[in-house]
Design a protein around this nucleic acid. Structure first.
Lengths: 110, 110
DNA sequence: TGGTATATGCCGACGGTCGGTATATGCTGC
DNA sequence: GCAGCATATACCGACCGTCGGCATATACCA
């Protein structure tokens, strides 16, 4: 799973959100680092819907503008959990190796 | 940074490795989940070398076969550390939201 | 002799993201 | 009044990284 996809799923894990709200939540979540492109978002939303990881929660019209809210499905929740575990496991391995490196070579500026 | 790239960098963080050894290390590291394709690996190795994140450590000939060993550069090490921190941060956010979900809806089978 | 493992490398195909554009409305500043 | 920006959805071509297959070559085992 790619980063944008993971972030979209995470955004929807918090609560039902419409597309634009996902963009904003991801931006905030990543400290401004990731601002999803509209093309990326809506393509991913369609794909995720096709995969059954998310579904349409409801539609609202606010100030004459449509808002389509999406929510995580059970499969989506499980998928996000699996992915999260993987991320953590990989981070732990990488961190361990980086730490070992510094122990062996860090102090000596070899 | 995509997953294969991250895993390659992690493999080289442990010690200098030649291409095929990277494939094996990544496979072991991910519990057999990820077996890098040769195409993916060597393309990534070239790209990473171009970006200055890795460099050729040495070349050996073992049983008439060339082995080109790669190692992480300082920039590569830093890049891996940054990426690792990001992974961990994202995992933490996702985990928090998943936990909150279960607290709110998990017990009720709503 | 054929199959697998080691080892590097090229190539076309594909999927997901990027960047731009279209459409439409409301708000703010000049 | 109108330009510019934020909101909001959606399509499109371009691009990049990965996939999957193939080529090359040697060693080992059945």
């Amino acid at each position: 799973m790619n980063e944008p996809t993971f972030l979209i799923l995470t955004a929807l894990a918090g609560e039902s959100r419409h597309g634009y709200a996902v963009i904003e939540d991801v931006e905030q979540m990543t400290g401004g680092r990731v601002r999803l492109r509209a093309g990326t978002l809506y393509a991913a939303l369609d794909r995720l819907r096709g995969e059954g990881l998310i579904e349409v929660d409801r539609e609202e019209v606010v100030q004459s503008r449509l808002r389509r809210y999406y929510r995580l499905t059970g499969a989506g929740e499980q998928s996000l959990q699996t992915e999260t575990d993987r991320l953590r496991a990989q981070a732990t391995i990488a961190e361990g190796r980086l730490r070992a490196r510094r122990t062996n070579f860090g102090g000596a500026t070899a």
